[in-house]
Amino acid sequence: MSFQDKLAEKKSKIVARWIEAVLASYSADGASFFKRQKDRFANPLGFAAKTGLTAIYEQLVGDAPAGEMPAELAQFIKLRSVQTFTPSQAVGFVFQLKPVLVEQLGWETLLAAGQEWSELAAKIDRLALKLFDLYVEDRELLHEVKLSEYKKGNHILAAGRCPSSALGGDSQAERVELKVIRDC
């Protein structure tokens, strides 16, 4: 049986272990729920992780050149970009695939695969870099969203004290500040 065939044959077990490893980055309660609930709307994180990792595994082990980034994986990275992970934690889960492959196929199989294993390992590395690019794009987008909210100026209005507050006998300094606001 070729290396490719073995990767295909063990696909469901390998992907399941990989997903389990990735979800272990959340609390035990969180991970257990993300794994259990199958409804994609009741459990968007779990669905994105499962669908995204399955799709990318097929790309990684297939012959075809790397295809488009699965939308669910992109969504998963986007979510991790706004969770409390460091950048390396947010994308580093990709590397968990390697120990999972060792566990599921055994070193002997991998060593025997030689060049093919080395190529797969390199693909995994490249995927991590791609996901890091996505992560950075997502963070930039987040800052654009923040900036756009800031530009709308709601905070200025909220912070600009209503001059009628001066009627309440506030300090002289505050009145001066209010005059400045009014003059603006």
Binding site: A21, A24, S25, Y26, F85, G92, Q96, E103
Partner: peptide, 12 residues
């Protein structure tokens, strides 16, 4: 990989 806290993934 799967059951213990991991430095890589920041498991709680």
């Amino acid at each position: 990989v799967a059951r213990e806290p991991s430095l890589m993934t920041g498991a709680i």
